[in-house]
Design a protein around this nucleic acid. Structure first.
Lengths: 249, 249
DNA sequence: CAGTGGTCTAGACCACATC
DNA sequence: ATGTGGTCTAGACCACTGG
């Protein structure tokens, strides 16, 4: 005898049960019901809680795991994805690789952090009103002491209130780990647009290249749950010893 | 009562049934049992043929559909992926987009096709012996009549015997569609490495930019079933009106 | 209408992790 | 030994497609 299906009944649309459940789980993640790194309830627990079968829970979780929102570990449980212990997928949001193949994680050196207003043009990408408060971070990524990338990062002031150079400098770990633990902002997705530009004199000095030398300009908009943009950045990257890598399928 | 499981019995390793089945299906694809664009047998047919349940067939097919080897269409069947009718996913292997957002498909103009020996350095990427026969194709991609990308393409002579400029020129459709229909070479995956380089005078003339202007250099190795490389190419791309786009998650 | 893939269920068993 | 996710099965029903 089939069980009653409260999820289906509550939603007039024709969305499959497991997708409705997925959206409910995302809502729970947004509501901080389970924190990054923690285990969510077991499949059987969720099945009984939502009144669906374990197979339906499994499909919902599989969809979220495919989007890197959850991580499944056999025998242990299903965990909320986190940027703080990502030594496995360290290069999920870093597509810059060394040509010689020696891929240690780069060091990040903060140049400055400034409060101000969001630049016009960037406001649109972040869904902000022109003139809104914003924080601008500039930093350099260094591989084995050699500067490779100059990042300029623009953040909405409302989400990152209280971000200072001292705090970033004090933090050990990636920038997105910093966002997650210190501001509760969880990065889940990004879109990048890459162009080639000449180095101006200021950038050339920082990256130790000749002025005019071609650089990759990697423009990125980063999103949290629900496709809400939370970061804009431009990375200027020398490709003397590095390249931007991508897999197509 | 559980059925006998011949697949499991035949394989001493501890690979799940659906992965074994997936590999068998890939073998059938390689053996040309089903051609690109054709439908493969229905789930129930495959289930009875291999002595597994429909659910197991479903998981195997889902894995292949996730890798873009098969395409599922509800109510119609499961089809072998093809490059010849890909107006839906036209940009699967083309990451160059127009900055103004008007994304028609570019025209391809062949410059020349030459028989010769594989350049050292590229031989390694293609898994070829140094000095092997190779075919070199140069072409320009034009958006609305304006040249944007200069491609240099190196192909193993053994796989593409008989490829001439006349044949490419006569073909209507994408290059990978040409490979698929004329040579039975099916592209399924690629790896790209992007750097920034200055335009030399010859390239600058073709792309109508100033010599020394920064270009994207997109180096690509393309693979068929089983991870066998079948194409090397370098695309030089002006980013005045275009960019290289990528999604991270 | 029949045939296809898509969803959902229920239950069994397996492999892994931990105690 | 227990609990977790992973696999596999069998069957029912739904949604889409096309004759």
């Amino acid at each position: 005898m089939p069980k009653p299906r409260p999820l289906r009944a509550a939603a007039p649309s024709f969305q499959p049960l497991y997708l409705q459940l997925r959206d409910l789980l995302v809502a729970s993640l947004e509501a901080d019901e389970w924190r990054p790194g923690e285990a969510i309830p077991s499949e059987t627990e969720l099945a009984s809680r939502f009144g669906v079968s374990q197979g339906t829970v499994r499909k919902a979780i599989a969809a979220l795991a495919a989007d890197n929102l959850l991580v499944r570990r056999q025998g242990k449980g299903t965990f909320v994805a986190t940027h703080t212990e990502e030594h496995a997928s360290m290069f999920r949001f870093l597509r810059i690789r060394r040509k010689d193949g020696r891929d240690e994680y780069p060091a990040s050196r903060i140049i400055d952090v400034r409060q101000g207003r969001v630049p016009t043009g960037i406001a649109r990408h972040l869904g902000l009103r022109p003139g809104s408060a914003a924080i601008r971070v500039r930093r350099v990524l260094e591989y084995a002491g050699e500067p490779a990338v100059l990042d300029e990062i623009v953040l909405p002031g409302t989400l990152f209130r209280g971000l200072t150079k001292a705090k970033v400098d004090a933090y050990r770990g990636s920038l997105y780990s910093f966002f997650e633990t210190q501001f509760g902002v969880r990065i889940v997705r990004a879109r990048e647009q890459v162009t080639a530009v000449p180095a101006d004199t200021a950038v050339a000095a920082i990256l130790r290249v000749r002025p005019g030398e071609p650089l990759l300009a990697v423009d990125r908009v980063t999103y949290t749950y629900g496709g809400r943009p939370v970061e804009w950045r431009r990375g200027l990257c020398t490709t003397r010893r590095h390249f931007y890598s991508n897999e197509l399928s």
